[in-house]
Every structure is written in structure tokens, then in C-alpha cells.
Nucleic acid binder design. Structure first.
Length: 538
DNA sequence: ACTGGGTTGAGGTT
DNA sequence: AACCTCAACCCAGT
């Protein structure tokens, strides 16, 4: 049994030293500090049945990003005279055992709004409180406290960005200095009989050799986050003129955005620190862009989705979600698989899906393109299926933001202009007429002339032969014809909207079944859409 | 009941 | 690069 008063700092997200209120409080006035990370097998252990390498919950790129973040955190803690204690098991069981074993009087961890953590944290808090242990769980992942905003709005979250911004106002801590550096931390006490390990490697977790070209180019960790932040804000003109919708989704050698999202997701970077750095830049320039398109605007989008997600039961599904339109999506796993496996036959769509698999990151507008294509634009597959794929493969996948954006793009909530469909051909072409992005991520098309690279099935056979890429053999034909299928999707969306209006949003499983039947009562039209119009090869 | 704004469509014309 | 038109809105907030 360890002696004296001890604090336990439980890291989950918030994998950083700077601006970490829970860590600061844990370190204050204590003899021993135990910084802990618990490896939840469900999140970390290999799942041989998953469609991509990784655990049941996360693809390998995100697991790797997390491990890199933990190694960096451990290094930083060591510089401060401490270290990271890594434990394995069901987190609440592991923690409650540690609390007893180490004679802890103070338990600190960052407040989290995700349903998974809300349930877990309640268990841990109850356990700790019953044992007379002080629990400190501050809000430090977001700019605002989502619960405060919901309360301010009378118990329901604001459902538009503008009303959210108005309601939120200035962040209360905006002008107060944040704690950016710590000079030292209390020692780690005796760990008793608890099984402590170093941060495991990917191999130690049971993952074999993975293909070299599937490594994300983005490295995890607070050090990397702060370096990236410094590089991003060094160009003051770029920061001051940043407009998200004007970014180029096909830029990959130098992405058009900061790529700070994965660092914000794991809390390697404090959103409040990022916010203050941006305000510093704004103060030193004549004019700057504003929300929603500015960089500060992006941080507010993040808080917006966190707030709506916290205040909306069943936010991550269609059924029982009061802000989600009930739409008779089809349940076609065949179509889903072509999308997921980057073989839709639309090079712009497939290249983006390859970037998702290999990098775990793609530009916001690229995400829009493929999300629209899967759901209301072409395939009419349920947004929850696409959400699952993103949630697994993105290194920055964030429960509130990912679900919020899928609701948005599928015209299920927030955004309702279902007539605006991204063209899988012309949208990418306007940014990258030469098709360099496609050539990079789909090397099979690297010699296709630019006239045909967005629609290779229209290339004469002689051109296909010369490019060493025969469509239908080396690269697939389009899974559906965009022109007719997008029209069909518009029709289905219009029907679904009418139904939702008629039934005032209370749409039963039976209503959806009937709706599906009704929508498919046009066999000739259906047959027509299945055929793919293309120039005869040769 | 009304108002007004909706981060980022496509394809055409000026 | 800015501005229509397409076919036609939707809904959150007040």
C-alpha cells in the first residue's frame, strides 16, 4: 500500500501537458501523482472480422496515431519528473482497483460528452465518490461547456450555427491566460501490485506487419500538434484570409487546411489555445475573415456539433432522433462495398476513398463528395453505413462531428437542399483539371489523358490501351449512371420530405417500408437506371 | 405567421 | 470572377 495523499490523473482524450486543467489540479498540493492511461481491449485489440486492419472500433491508422500520442505524452511527463502509467482492461474496473491500491484522494479527468464516456464516467465517479474520493472533471475539450449552452437555450440545443454563435457569445476565458507550460510534476508513488507497462507498440498489441503504403503521413502527439500549429499560424495572411469553402479538396502535397483536426480530436492540441493563437493573429492584421468560414469559425462548428450532439437523444442514428428526417434509404450492401472499397468506377470518388484508407484524412469537401455520392446523390445507401466507415478509418473521427456531418450531407438534418448534388465528375475537375490527385491515389489511371480521367469509360479503346488501363478489366465501369441515378435520388428525397411533413416527422418502420415499395413501383425506370450509357468501346 | 439566411452545386452567360 | 438560372426550399428562431 502506498502511503500519503495521491492524485490520479486519468488521460483519455486531452493527451497534452499544455492547457490541461485536470492535470494541473491533480498536481496541485499532492505528494504523489499517478498519470494513467487505460488500454481498453475493445478499442485496441485486433478484430480479424473487420473490413480493414484494426480493432472492432478503430482502424490501424488511428490506433497508431493514438499510440504515438501516448509515447509523446510519456516523454513530456518524463521531462517533468513523472511518467505515463499504462494499464490494461475495462477502464472502470482498472481505475477503481488503482484508486484503492494507491490510496488516492483525488481523481481528475477531462469531462467528455460522448455517450460512451458519459456512461463510463458515471460508473467511475460513483465508485470514487462512494469511497470518499474527490472527483474533478473539468470541461476543457471544447471552447464552451455544451451543457451551459443547452441550459441557456431552455433545455434544447440550438439547431442552427448562427443561433449557436449568438447564444454562445464570447468564451468566458478568452482573454485570461492559459497555463501553457508546467515546470515539474509530483513523483509517481509506489504502484503496488497493479500491472503497469510502457506504451505498447502496434506489434505488441497483436498487429502484424501492415502494408507500408497504408501509413498515414500524420504523426500523433502534442509535440507534433504544436509544431503544426506554429507552422499554420506563421503565415498571417493565410490565417487572416482563410475561407473553408474556398479550399482545394484535391490538394494533397500541401493540404488546403491546417490538418489540426486529429490533434484536436485526441486533445493533443487544446482548442482554447488554438483559439487564442488565432485571436493573436487577428489582432495584428487589418482585416480577417469571420465565422462560419474563418478558422475561428471552424472551432465554433466543432462546438456547435458537440452541443447539438449532447442535447439530442439518439443523435447517431435515424430512428428515434428527433432532428433527423426519416428517409427510406436502401439496404444495399453491394453498393456500400463498392464505395468502401474504392471501386465505384468514378475516379474522383474512388481516389478520395483510397486517400481515406491510406491516410485516414481527406479534405472537408472531398468528404462531402463521397458522402453525398453514397447517400442522397447516387447510391441512396443509409448515412449510418457511411458514418461507420468514416468513424473507423478517419484519424480525426470524432463522434459528434462525424455524425453531425453525415446528418448534414445526407440532408437528414441542418441542411435540406437536396437538389444540390455534387457531381462525381465535374466537382473535382474544377479544382484539378489535370487529375493529379486521381493519378496519385489511383495509379492504375496515371497514364489516362486528362480529357478522360474523370470519365475513363468514355475513352476510346485505343486510348485505354495506350494508357494501359482497360475499363471493365483494369478499372471498373461506373457502378450506376450518375445522370439518371441522381435524378432518381432527388425524386426519392422529395417523396421522403413530403412524407415527413405529412406525418409531422413521426414516421414508423411500416411507413418507411411502404414508402420503399412505392418508390420502386417504376420498374421500367429502375431498369433504365441500371443500364450504363457509354460509348461503345473501340 | 412571418422572416431571413442557408459555410462550400452545376452549368451557363456576361 | 461575378452573376444568373435551374427548379424549386427548408426550417429555426422570433
Amino acid at each position: 500500500m502506498a502511503s500519503g495523499s495521491g492524485s490520479l490523473m486519468w488521460f483519455r482524450k486531452g493527451l497534452r501537458i499544455h492547457d490541461n486543467p485536470a492535470l494541473e489540479y491533480a498536481a496541485k498540493g499532492t505528494r504523489f501523482l499517478y498519470p494513467v492511461f487505460v488500454i481498453d481491449p475493445h478499442y485496441m485489440e485486433p478484430d480479424p472480422n473487420a473490413f480493414s486492419p484494426g480493432s472492432p472500433r478503430a482502424g490501424l491508422n488511428r490506433i497508431r496515431f493514438l499510440l504515438e500520442s501516448l509515447v509523446d505524452l510519456d516523454l513530456s511527463l518524463k521531462k517533468l519528473g513523472s511518467r505515463l502509467l499504462v494499464l490494461k482492461g475495462e477502464p472502470s474496473e482498472v481505475l477503481i482497483r488503482c484508486l484503492k491500491e494507491w490510496d488516492i484522494t483525488k481523481l481528475c479527468f477531462e469531462y467528455d460528452t460522448e455517450p460512451y464516456y458519459q456512461a463510463l464516467d458515471l460508473k467511475v465517479k460513483t465508485g470514487a465518490s462512494t469511497a470518499g474520493i474527490e472527483v474533478f472533471s473539468p470541461v476543457s475539450h471544447t471552447l464552451f461547456n455544451p451543457a451551459d449552452i443547452i441550459h441557456k437555450n431552455g433545455g434544447r440545443p440550438p439547431l442552427s450555427y448562427q443561433s449557436f454563435v449568438k447564444l454562445a457569445g464570447q468564451p468566458s476565458w478568452a482573454s485570461s491566460p492559459l497555463s501553457i507550460t508546467l515546470s515539474s510534476l509530483p513523483h509517481v508513488g509506489d504502484v503496488g501490485s497493479c500491472e503497469i507497462s510502457e506504451v505498447p507498440t502496434i506489434e505488441e498489441l497483436g498487429y502484424g506487419e501492415s502494408p507500408q503504403d497504408c501509413f498515414s503521413p500524420f504523426r500523433g502527439g502534442e509535440s507534433e500538434a504544436l509544431k503544426r500549429l506554429r507552422e499554420s499560424i506563421a503565415d498571417k495572411v493565410w490565417v487572416a484570409t482563410f475561407e473553408k469553402p474556398k479550399g482545394n479538396p484535391s490538394a494533397f502535397l500541401k493540404p488546403a487546411t491546417t490538418v489540426l483536426s486529429p490533434y484536436l480530436k485526441f486533445g493533443c492540441l487544446s482548442s482554447r489555445y488554438f483559439y487564442q493563437c488565432l485571436q493573436d493573429v487577428y489582432r495584428n492584421v487589418k482585416r480577417h475573415t469571420s465565422p462560419p468560414v474563418s478558422l475561428v469559425g471552424q472551432l465554433l462548428w466543432r462546438d456547435f456539433f458537440y452541443t447539438v450532439a449532447l442535447g439530442t437523444p439518439n443523435f447517431d442514428q435515424m430512428r428515434g432522433n428527433r432532428i433527423c428526417k426519416q428517409i427510406p434509404w436502401n439496404d444495399n450492401d453491394e453498393l456500400l462495398a463498392t464505395w468502401r472499397e474504392a471501386r465505384t468506377g468514378y475516379p474522383w470518388i474512388d481516389a478520395i476513398m483510397v486517400q481515406l484508407c491510406k491516410w485516414g484524412w481527406m479534405h472537408h469537401l472531398a468528404r462531402h463528395s463521397v458522402a453525398c455520392f453514397l447517400t442522397r446523390g447516387d447510391l441512396f445507401v443509409h448515412w449510418e453505413k457511411g458514418r461507420d466507415v468514416f468513424e473507423r478509418l478517419l484519424i480525426d473521427s470524432d463522434w459528434a462531428i462525424n455524425n453531425g456531418n453525415w446528418l448534414w450531407l445526407s440532408c437528414s438534418s441542418f441542411f435540406y437542399q437536396y437538389n444540390r448534388i455534387y457531381s462525381p465528375i465535374s466537382f473535382g475537375k474544377k479544382y484539378d483539371p489535370n487529375g493529379d490527385y486521381i493519378r496519385h491515389f489511383l495509379p492504375v489511371l496515371k497514364d489516362m489523358p486528362k480529357e478522360y480521367i474523370y470519365e475513363p469509360w468514355t475513352a476510346p479503346l485505343s486510348v485505354q490501351t495506350k494508357a494501359k488501363c482497360i475499363i471493365g478489366r483494369d478499372y471498373p465501369k461506373p457502378v450506376v449512371p450518375h445522370d439518371s441515378e441522381s435524378k432518381e435520388c432527388r425524386r426519392k428525397m422529395a417523396e421522403a420530405y413530403t412524407l415527413n411533413q405529412k406525418l409531422k416527422g413521426v414516421v414508423s418502420e411500416e411507413d418507411l417500408k411502404n414508402s420503399r415499395r412505392k418508390l420502386e413501383e417504376h420498374p421500367e425506370q429502375e431498369a433504365k437506371t441500371k443500364r450504363i450509357r457509354q460509348k461503345p468501346v473501340g
